[in-house]
Design a protein around this nucleic acid. Structure first.
Lengths: 67, 67
DNA sequence: TGAAAATGGAAAGTTTGCTTGACATGCGTT
DNA sequence: AACGCATGTCAAGCAAACTTTCCATTTTCA
């Protein structure tokens, strides 16, 4: 799964730390998502999508085949 | 988070066991999701939404406020 | 240039998603 | 009643998503 988190965050002109505070997660969680170290839970994905006023599918890009 | 899994599965006329096989998870996982014992990972949410040909947001209903 | 700010990322611990295995319940048939 | 079948649910265990703490690296800007 890919995501557009870094791109979207920068477009909003905010720091990882600020986005983390808004979403109520740690800064490291944001960094880890941006750098693809792991995928968000569905709850965090919803929070992120809602913050950017988008659908989950437009923030997180599912690559069907492999896990 | 609520979801429409049981409703959608029954509309397709398939058993929990069959849906589980299609999604490559255990029957218990499907049962647990239908009965709200836990939320799916985002990868499983994508698989489910894709199977039913819907958006994640239309299968899983995020209730904003609470944790 | 050099110091502060922002980000990258590792390590260890907790919580949650998911597995297998087992057993109980309900419901139609026969 | 007894059977088969679908579902509910528990327990133990593993993996992944998160946390906090810490330090290294990069970026920014006076």
């Amino acid at each position: 799964m890919k995501n557009r988190l870094e791109e979207l965050r920068k477009a909003r002109g905010i720091k990882q730390e600020e986005l983390a505070a808004i979403l109520e997660v740690s800064r490291q969680t944001i960094g880890s998502l941006e750098n693809g170290r792991y995928n968000p839970s569905i709850l965090l994905a919803f929070k992120i999508a809602r913050y950017f006023d988008m659908n989950i599918e437009d923030v997180f890009i599912y690559e069907e085949d492999a896990q």
